[in-house]
Simulated assay, not measured.
Amino acid sequence: MGNRIFHKDSTTNDEEVVRLGSGAFGEIRLVTIPDEGRVASKALKGKTNNPWMESEATVQMAASHECIVKVFGLHKPRGMAEIAMEYMSGGNLHRLLLNKRKTLTFIQRHNMCYDVARGLEHLHNLPDGGCIIHNDIKPDNILLTQDLRCKIADFGCSKWYDEDGEFVDGCPKDLFCIAYAAPEKLHHHLFPFVDADNNVQQYHALIIEAVPASDLGLKDAYLPHESSDIYSFALLIYMLLYRRRPWSGSVGNFLAQVLRGERPETPKIYAKNSELKSAKTLLRLMLKCWKENIYKRPTSAEICLELQGLPSRL
């Protein structure tokens, strides 16, 4: 596929800009651009253009699907490239799940899970035979419509491969969120994380305690794999089920747990009889998806098959 990015110059009145959110690397604003109207605009922090922006937009446009946030292209409202994408008025899944005043049935949670699974199935099995590994599946990167339809967003860490496994485009580095990273990624990237006390020694000690790489299904050098998205998806299911973060405490503590083959605790789930099937299916699926060995986790296509026969959207 060729480069389908289009560039548009646009100007915005700062008084009309609504800031939707911000993160470690940038911010999302609601702006108006010619021809497209009101869109969400992603800008990286800093005062220089970043070539990764075009790669991110290219990959996300190639991933076009109803369960993936639509990208319109790049525009330059302030002289620097920003990604223009559809505005998702429901916010992100992380914020919704931690808002205990918002009630969610297990059937609604099942449907959200199914939306994300369908998006992943499309990414991992592109129509042209290629594959996109998202590399950053987490509730923060799942955006919602007003009626709680979920779409996958933020392709800043993603990698696009053709049907022969050759790299096409995407992030040139292997970036990911530590809290949702699969064990095989952490094994490969045992770079010295530094906590608030600048304590590095505990991370060196973890190498001795870690599960052997062979138990993870790693034979030789680590290569990005769709199964890493599936592990992250399991932790997303965890948040859907329990409405709390999968890990607590310091980075060192949960990193040690993951590398020792441990998983977040799974308290008993209480559900109405009419929702019991959905709750049990999500729990069973979560346990499958966070298996240690990458080849024992289900594929995104298998996950969709398991979810599609459950209750319809309410």
Rank of each mutant, 00 (worst) to 15 (best):
S22R: 07
K47Q: 02
S22F: 08
M53A: 05
V17R: 14
D14M: 12
R29W: 08
A40N: 01
L30F: 06
G46A: 02
G46S: 02
F25H: 14
T32A: 13
G26R: 01
M53I: 12
F25Q: 09
T48F: 04
A40M: 01
T11R: 15
V18G: 02
K45Q: 06
E15Y: 09
D35E: 14
S22K: 06
A43Q: 12
T11H: 13
G21C: 05
R38W: 05
R19T: 15
V18W: 04
V18L: 06
L44D: 03
K45Y: 08
L20C: 06
D14T: 11
D14Y: 09
A40P: 01
I33F: 13
T32I: 13
V39P: 01
K47N: 00
L30W: 01
E27W: 02
T48S: 03
A43V: 06
R38T: 07
S22Q: 05
G46V: 00
L30T: 00
T12A: 15
E27P: 01
V18Y: 10
K42N: 11
I28R: 02
N13Q: 14
V18N: 07
D14H: 12
K47V: 00
M53T: 04
V17Q: 09
R38A: 10
L44V: 09
I33A: 15
P34W: 11
P51A: 07
R19K: 09
K45L: 06
N50T: 07
G26T: 06
T12S: 14
R29E: 08
S22N: 05
V18P: 03
A24K: 12
A43M: 12
K42H: 11
K45C: 05
I28L: 12
A43N: 10
V39K: 03
E15A: 12
I33K: 07
P34C: 13
E15R: 11
P34V: 10
F25D: 05
R38P: 06
A40Q: 00
P34E: 15
R29T: 08
I33T: 12
P51Q: 03
I33S: 11
V17A: 13
T11W: 12
V17Y: 03
G21P: 04
I33E: 15
T48N: 01
S22W: 08
R29S: 08
D14S: 10
T48K: 01
F25M: 12
N49R: 02
E15P: 04
E16A: 15
E36I: 07
V17T: 13
G21N: 03
N13A: 12
N49W: 00
L44P: 02
L20H: 06
G21Y: 01
A24F: 05
E15H: 11
E16S: 15
L20Y: 08
T12I: 15
E27G: 04
F25N: 13
A40Y: 01
K45R: 07
G46D: 05
E54W: 06
L44K: 08
N50L: 06
G46T: 00
T32Q: 15
D35P: 09
K47M: 03
K45H: 10
S41F: 05
P34I: 11
E16C: 13
V31A: 11
A40R: 00
W52T: 15
E54C: 08
F25G: 03
V31D: 14
T11N: 13
E36Q: 09
V31H: 12
